[in-house]
Design a protein around this nucleic acid. Structure first.
Length: 847
DNA sequence: GGTCTAGCCATTTTT
DNA sequence: TGGCTAGACC
């Protein structure tokens, strides 16, 4: 798990006696009766009890996947087949790992503490890599760069290669390299054609240069956490054998999301014992675009001959209608292993899956929030309601609406705590303190707060660092002893260098939380935000406090930094009752009583780009996304589409998603539009050109139906865009109304009018004005990048030339002069025009 | 070295 | 439409 400290050495497991008498006896004492096997269905039980040999568990949505995984672990432990430290359990997200830990703890008690190898691929990769870092030319205290650092590094490399940054943006290179790493390719074995596809054929070289830079920085990116480990295992069979022996049982969650690198990683480990259990659902593979290989799951039986495949199809989550809708839809996909979910519960009185339309996206937001208020009045918890969108821009209208209504909501996903500028700045200070060689961190904060250290000064430091082959901080330490920099820059840089020296000295002697506070205060960083008059400054200070608080859970600053680089998520406050707003992607694995699925329109869902770039495979992945969306619902699912949507600022007429017609009639109820605009397409309907008509046709039929029934309702004022009207609508005392059609008629019941508009508005707990989210995101400070091939670089001699007293030398800034004194690499020179100066030898040349 | 403005681009996201 | 970036300008 993340947060683990690098441990020196590798403790090999004592002689294993799987299922031995002693082991069983010990287990029997701790675990008198295996109650954990109660209340399981036959398939689940089989998936749990079949512990030897390869097993693939195809677990449909809501079939108890996590339960199987955790119980399986409990079973392995209880039967004495392995000890906690001999089980490797891999997940994709920290959240999943955390949940699994909790649930195992619940099952078997405290012994979960002894499961050191339960974690994400990356956390486990880090742990392995720290033990063997030297085998790939790193030190065990390497840093893990995040995407922001990577990008800056790539920018520097692109510049250094003299490539036009505009034509070849660093982002694109980052995505190339990411893709290569996902596929387990290092610079030496990328396909030549791909290597040439970037930067005038220099793609491969840039990748190589990037890796080289990482090594000198003693750093890795996320991909390396897997790749380096694969390399180590491939090149050092003895090391691999150690791990193969250690991990008697391997479990993998969300197997459909593994990429090639992760697959290779797993295969190396599992080769020996073959006790590998992969749990996944090919129908929920929605991460193909970031390298996930559905093939891994489709090929499992081929890769592990004799594998047992167990299907979990008994669904415990949703009603018959919801399951039928989802199943019918997903059956339109061709590449799948095939599963059919069913439920044994009787849902006679359950609601059918609702399909509704609106005139535009604004009305969609209004209608859905009306419906949510209705549910709330009927006693439903907001926490049990979710709005799942395809793309995050769709959230805005909902947020606006919720703010207007004072309806509590939370955005799940979104910008994360550790990605906020102030948090990253603070972390950069801590990183530089712990890791004086962390140039990227140093660069980030060298002029934050402003210290008058701009590009020009930084270039000097960079030039020297490169010439000497030392980190920036060290170079800064050297340069401030000279007169290279302007006096102002020099003294402020000296101040910073001295501070870091001081903080570093305190690292050992002071509680790390105290030190962190001192660093932020002494550096002037806290003060910078205190003096900032902008609206977000208080929030940022609060975030910094929160950062210091969260540090208390870790034993040292380095331990905390490791945690941060691997765990980028923050928990939402579940105690607050609020509507959940998120993308379909981030909804995977969650469930809610009621799910709203807005924006089912061609081009948005399925997304045009998925179709353009992915063809049929792209369409199928979109369909799986739809499947994921529907199966999140326990009791109620409502699908919406708007006839008009604003895209990139201009209004566009849209066609209902083809997925709508892939739903089964008997389980779907078409809901009348409440809008007095007339539901789908009164006027627009006739205007619509059959563009993309092959796709449009199916949706057409649905559109006709909706048109037929779409104009009836229209409560008063429901169509008003007018804010005042809106508030008026909210006056109490409106009569009962039917389920959907007249929801807008008045939001009377529960919430009053004006006075309560802000009720439950807790600024700390959920997002307030939508502006905050969209108008004020993480503005990063721009720091001077590295300038290669600049004037400075030219004036820097590469070797450490030595000069003799009396020798004539040339300095870029001060001109010609005579060496007066030589003290190591520091020269005192009488310049003909500039007078006597102390400079570093690498800044002068022989004329 | 900081601020202003024109031009570009615009799914999905974890580690 | 609007947010972000790079480069011009003060």
């Amino acid at each position: 798990m993340a947060g683990s400290q690098p441990r020196p050495g590798f403790e090999p497991a004592p002689p294993p006696r799987p299922g031995g008498i002693a082991a069983r006896a010990a287990a029997a004492r701790a675990m008198p009766a295996p109650t954990y096997l109660d209340n399981l269905n036959p398939e689940q039980r089989e998936a749990i009890v079949t512990i030897d040999g390869p097993v693939l568990v195809l677990a449909g949505a809501g079939t108890g996947k996590t339960r199987v995984l955790t119980t399986r672990i409990a079973h392995i432990l209880a039967t004495g087949h392995a000890r906690p430290s001999e089980i490797l359990a891999v997940t994709f997200t920290n959240k999943a790992a955390r949940e699994m830990k909790e649930r195992i703890a619940h099952l078997i008690g405290e012994r979960v503490e002894g499961m050191p190898w339960l974690g994400t691929f990356h956390a486990i990769g880090t742990k392995v890599l720290r033990r063997h870092a030297e085998l790939v030319g790193l030190r065990s205290d390497f840093t893990i760069l995040d995407t922001d650092d990577q990008l800056r590094l790539m920018k520097q490399i692109i510049q250094a290669e003299g490539i036009d940054e505009k034509r070849w943006p660093a982002r694109q290179l980052a995505s190339f390299i990411d893709t290569w790493k996902n596929r387990g390719l290092d610079p030496d074995n990328i396909p030549p054609l791909e290597a040439k596809a970037f930067g005038n054929g220099k793609g491969g070289d840039l990748y190589r240069a990037y890796q080289a830079r990482l090594k000198t920085l003693n750093a890795t990116d996320f991909g390396d956490l897997l790749l380096h480990v694969i390399k180590i295992w491939q090149r050092h069979p003895d090391v691999l054998a150690d791990y193969q022996r250690r991990f008697r049982y391997i479990l993998v969650d969300e197997y459909q999301d593994t990429n090639v690198a992760q697959y290779l990683w797993l295969r190396l480990l599992a080769m020996q014992t073959k006790n590998v259990c992969c749990v996944g659902d090919d129908d929920q593979s929605i991460y193909g675009w970031r390298g996930a290989e559905v093939d891994n799951i489709l090929r499992f039986e081929h890769d592990f001959p004799g594998a047992k495949v167990i299907r979990l199809e008994r669904n415990y989550r949703s009603t018959t209608h919801i399951l039928a809708a989802a199943s019918h839809l997903i059956a339109h996909n061709e590449s799948r292993l095939g599963k059919t979910l069913f439920t044994e519960k009787n849902h006679d009185d359950a609601e059918k899956v609702a399909v509704a339309s609106s005139w535009d996206s604004e009305e969609e937001a209004r209608s859905i929030s009306d419906e949510i208020e209705r549910l709330q009045r009927d006693g439903h918890k907001l926490n049990e309601i979710a709005i799942l969108v395809r793309a995050s821009f769709q959230m805005r209208e909902f947020e606006d609406r919720f703010v207007t209504l004072g309806l509590p909501y939370r955005v799940v996903g979104g910008p994360r705590f550790y990605e906020r500028a102030e948090i990253r700045d603070a972390l950069a200070y801590f990183r530089t303190t712990c890791q004086p060689a962390d140039d990227l961190a140093f660069e980030r904060i060298v002029n934050v707060p402003k210290r008058g250290l701009g590009d020009a000064s930084l270039q000097q430091v960079h030039g020297l660092a490169r010439a000497r082959g030392v980190p920036l901080l060290a170079a800064a330490g050297l340069i401030v002893e000279t007169e290279e920099l302007k006096p102002k820059a020099r003294s402020s840089l000296k101040g910073l260098v001295d501070s870091f020296t001081r903080w570093r000295a305190q690292l050992e002697h002071m509680p790390h939380t105290d030190l962190a506070g001192i660093i932020l205060d002494e550096s002037g960083y806290t003060e910078m935000w205190q003096n900032d008059r902008s609206a977000e400054a208080p929030g940022r200070l609060e975030n910094l406090k929160e950062l210091l608080r969260s540090m208390e859970d870790y034993e040292s600053l380095p331990a905390f930094l490791e945690h941060v680089s691997l765990v980028m998520d923050t928990e939402n406050d579940p105690s607050l009752d609020a509507v959940n707003v998120m993308t379909l992607h981030s909804a995977k694995g969650l469930e809610f009583d009621t799910v709203f699925l807005p924006g089912w329109e061609e081009g948005l869902f399925p997304h045009q780009r998925a179709l353009d770039e992915g063809g049929r495979a792209g369409l199928e992945e979109e369909r799986r996304l739809a499947y994921v969306g529907i199966t999140r619902a326990k009791k109620r699912a409502q699908i919406w589409f708007a006839s008009n949507r604003r895209i990139h600022g201009s209004w566009q007429t849209s066609i209902p998603s083809r997925f709508l017609d892939e739903l089964p009639e008997p389980h779907v109820e078409v809901i009348e539009s409440k809008s007095n605009y007339g539901g789908y397409g009164r006027s627009r309907f006739d205007q619509m050109e059959p563009f993309g008509s092959t796709y449009a046709t199916p949706g057409w039929q649905r559109a006709q139906k909706l048109k037929a029934g779409g104009r009836t309702a229209g409560g008063y004022g429901s169509s008003s865009d007018d804010y005042a009207q809106d508030e008026y609508d909210r006056a109490p005392g409106e009569a009962q109304r039917g389920r959907f059609g007249d929801a807008a008629g008045g939001r009377g019941g529960g919430r009053g009018g004006f006075g309560e508009a802000g009720r439950g508005f807790d600024h700390d707990s959920y997002r307030t004005p939508a502006r905050d989210r969209w108008g004020n995101p993480l503005r990063e400070k721009k720091l001077g990048g590295v300038i290669e091939g600049s004037l400075v670089a030219k004036s820097v001699s590469t070797g450490a030339a030595t000069y003799a007293v009396g020798e004539r030398v040339f300095h870029q800034k001060f001109g010609i002069g005579s060496v007066i004194e030589v003290e190591g690499n520091k020269l005192t020179i009488d310049f003909d025009r500039a007078g006597r100066k102390r400079v570093l030898d690498s800044f002068v040349t022989r004329p």
